[in-house]
Design a protein around this nucleic acid. Sequence first.
DNA 1: GCGACAG
DNA 2: ATCTTGTCGC
Length: 237
Amino acid sequence: MAATAGSRQLVRHSWSPAYREAVGIQEDLRRRLVLTDRFHRPLRTVAGADLSYERRRNLLFAAVLVFSWPELRLLEIGEEVRPAAFPYIPGLLTFREGPAMTAILERLRHWPDLLVCDGQGIAHPRGLGLAAHLGVLFDLPTIGCAKSRLIGKYTMPGVAKGCRSPLVDDAGRRIGTVLRTRRDVKPVFVSPGHRVGLESAADLVLQLVSRYRLPEVTRLAHHHVNRLRLEHCPPAG
DNA sequence: GCGACAG
DNA sequence: ATCTTGTCGC
């Protein structure tokens, strides 16, 4: 772990650690997490990040889309295409997706006030899912909005849009919110990343939702990486 | 040993 | 995440 000058990423570490080393990195970065609302300034821009994977060529297609807040006008698209250099291991997703995401963040011209990631925030075995991890590396306010559970217990929230129930860890501490973003549709799992409180994380995600299950910023990022993949890997070959 | 397991 | 065919509904 080292401090860095001349870049937005304030902390650096290996992106190809052995399992035990990766766990150590997460445990270390976890101590730097800020779990209350500490935005650098009032919200003016919000970004969404997502990634697509092409098996045959082992390629990752990542994108970060920056939008104005609250109008959600698209301001910038950051992209990165590169080989996957780390396998998917539950609990170590950041080591697979992190390199592409950090490369994009380093190049953005519009630095977002908030980043929403497709994955967990603190709802993670060591309290440092993808969103929390990226937040600490850049001291960037982040929220994790995952489509399924990694850890934690919960009761299913009501079927109406906006219904929520707490996500709780084994020690009984609250780690996130199971949020119904659309009537009768499977809820999302929201947890704070960095510099955002538990309640605010769910509130913000709900504000970012329109008529679909996922918040607009990650939904559009998802669309974008799929387009990006099709450009590089046309259906036929 | 078994079950669980973001993307 | 991807792969993969059909199916159901607005």
